[in-house]
Design a protein around this nucleic acid. Structure first.
Length: 439
RNA sequence: GCCCUGGUAGUAUAGUCCGGUCUAGUAUAGGCGGCUGUCGCCCGCCCGACCCGGGUUCAAAUCCCGGCCAGGGCGCCA
């Protein structure tokens, strides 16, 4: 079929902005055909755009033949433009409809779509992810990513207001010696390099110059993890603050979480309703459980964990039932945390690291960092790491490393919390895991 | 990497236990036709599928073995 060009048409309103008050006014709408209900003498076309939907009503005998033939040719997902008159009406749920005066078809679509975009017949996640560009057109998914966007916007504003500077650290790094998580190797000209798993060392180095920094960006972990809360590429929101300790950044984090829930609740009312999800705004301060208290809680539930061990997933699930919302876990055994977490001055068996939990899911982790070079080297050795491999990082500790603390929060996990999604892949536009590299 | 469960039209499912009745049912989508107030529109007709390979058997969607893929769980996750 012959396609139209946009010409001098420009959008005057999004679908959601077409309200009964505009009765009688001409609007230009752009979007996609979401649904067509043809009753013979009258045809209802649901136009969808980023902000929602609006009904285009085509009464056969009342529109000109050109509009009629265009309207008859439309099919699902055609990209269209409609110039028409807003009509206030009692008959539609939204209280408005648009009677077209002119219709443009910008693009057609395959008649047999791989998934049902209305959601009458739900598709499996696998099928949805294979058809992700189309899947993302579903209103439910638009809602998820608008909420994610709102959260990122809120977090950035919050941190800017508190004097944090947004930074960008390298994604390509030279050494695999940070320990722990497996790294993805890459060819870097003739050398071997790796994709960064965290900005940890860089953001610590930056506190000696920029003092308060944050970064929002992707990181990579080549783990075998195959769960609904792990990805091999994820977005981390990382902060690091000079002249601070764990409690300072924990307060920052709980205020930030409360504020994020509050703003998302206000600004994303439509999206939350669409997802059929109620987001509670939590009270601060959040519970602070010590590692010992957690072991005790679990013991009462019949789960024994030897002191010093990390807490296994099933135990976290139990814990999430006892503490059903946000809470911190503090006073971890030093041996269970990363080498850069500061041991307590009065009891070096314990450290100033913390986990920030939402039910049974770890949303963030952080802590006071070690500022002393000697201690850091000692901890590296205890962890079986070679200080020589860290010489470029360690130099920062020769130039006046202040006391500092920070945390990192997983954006996709945060999005799961904010949207009620149960699989992290739904909170990621194009998820990457061990088995999925496309689309 | 390990354990459990599963793989049937574009999509979602029934059938699998207990082989034959399956020419594989249903819904939805798609095609064609009809319908002037639908909003999961409705009505009629049509199209369309047993993951791959091997085995058992007179006979396999169904039982067995291997593979691939998916979901869930575990481990791993500074």
């Amino acid at each position: 079929m012959k396609l139209d060009s946009i010409g001098d048409w420009r959008r005057t309103h999004y679908s959601a902005e077409v309200r009964p008050e505009l009765d009688g006014q001409e609007v230009t709408l752009f979007g996609w055909v979401q649904e067509i209900r043809d009753l013979g003498g009258i045809r209802f076309i649901i136009l969808q755009d980023r902000e929602g939907t609006v009904q285009i009503t085509v009464p056969r005998k009342k529109v000109c033949s050109e509009v009629l033939s265009k309207a008859e040719a439309l099919q699902k997902r055609y990209s269209i433009g409609v110039k028409g008159i807003v009509k206030k009406t009692e008959i539609t749920p939204r209280g408005v409809e648009v009677i077209p005066k002119e219709v443009k078809v910008f693009s057609t679509a395959s008649p047999q779509l791989p998934i049902d975009i209305i959601g009458k017949v739900p598709a499996k996640l696998e099928v949805r992810l294979d058809a992700r560009p189309l899947d993302l057109c579903r209103e439910e998914n638009i809602a998820v990513f608008k909420i994610q966007h709102t959260a990122v916007e809120v977090i950035r504003d919050f941190l800017f207001e508190r004097g944090f500077i947004e930074v960008h650290t390298p994604r390509i790094i030279a050494s695999a010696t940070e320990g722990g998580a497996a790294l993805f190797p890459v060819d870097y000209f003739e050398r071997k390099a790796f994709l960064a798993q965290s900005p940890q060392l860089y953001k610590e180095q930056l506190v000696i110059s920029l003092e308060r920094v944050f970064e929002v960006g992707p990181f990579f972990r080549a783990e075998e993890s195959h769960t609904r809360r792990h990805l091999s590429e994820f977005v981390s929101i990382d902060i690091e603050q000079a002249f601070a300790k764990a409690e300072d950044v924990m307060q920052l984090l709980e205020q930030l979480m409360q504020h994020t829930c509050k703003v998302v609740n206000e600004k994303c009312r439509r999206e939350l309703a669409l997802l059929n999800y109620k987001l509670e705004v939590p009270e601060t301060p959040f519970k602070r459980l010590t590692y010992d208290m957690v072991l005790e809680d679990l013991r009462k539930e019949g789960v024994e964990i030897p002191w010093g061990e990390d807490i296994p997933t099933p135990a976290f699930r139990t814990l999430g039932k006892i503490h059903p919302y946000f809470y911190f876990i503090t006073d971890w055994p030093t041996q269970s945390k990363a080498f850069y977490i500061k041991p307590k001055d009065d009891n070096p068996e314990l450290c100033e690291g913390f986990d920030f939990m939402w039910r049974w899911i770890e949303l963030a982790s952080g802590g006071t960092r070690i500022a002393s070079k000697e201690l850091l080297i000692k901890r590296l050795k205890e962890k079986g790491l070679n200080p020589e491999s860290f010489k470029y990082h360690l130099q920062a500790f020769d130039y006046g490393m202040p006391p500092h603390a920070g945390w990192a929060i997983g954006l996709e996990r945060l999005t799961m919390m904010l949207t009620g999604r149960k699989n992290i892949r739904e909170a990621t536009l194009y998820p990457r895991d061990k088995f999925r590299l496309t689309p």
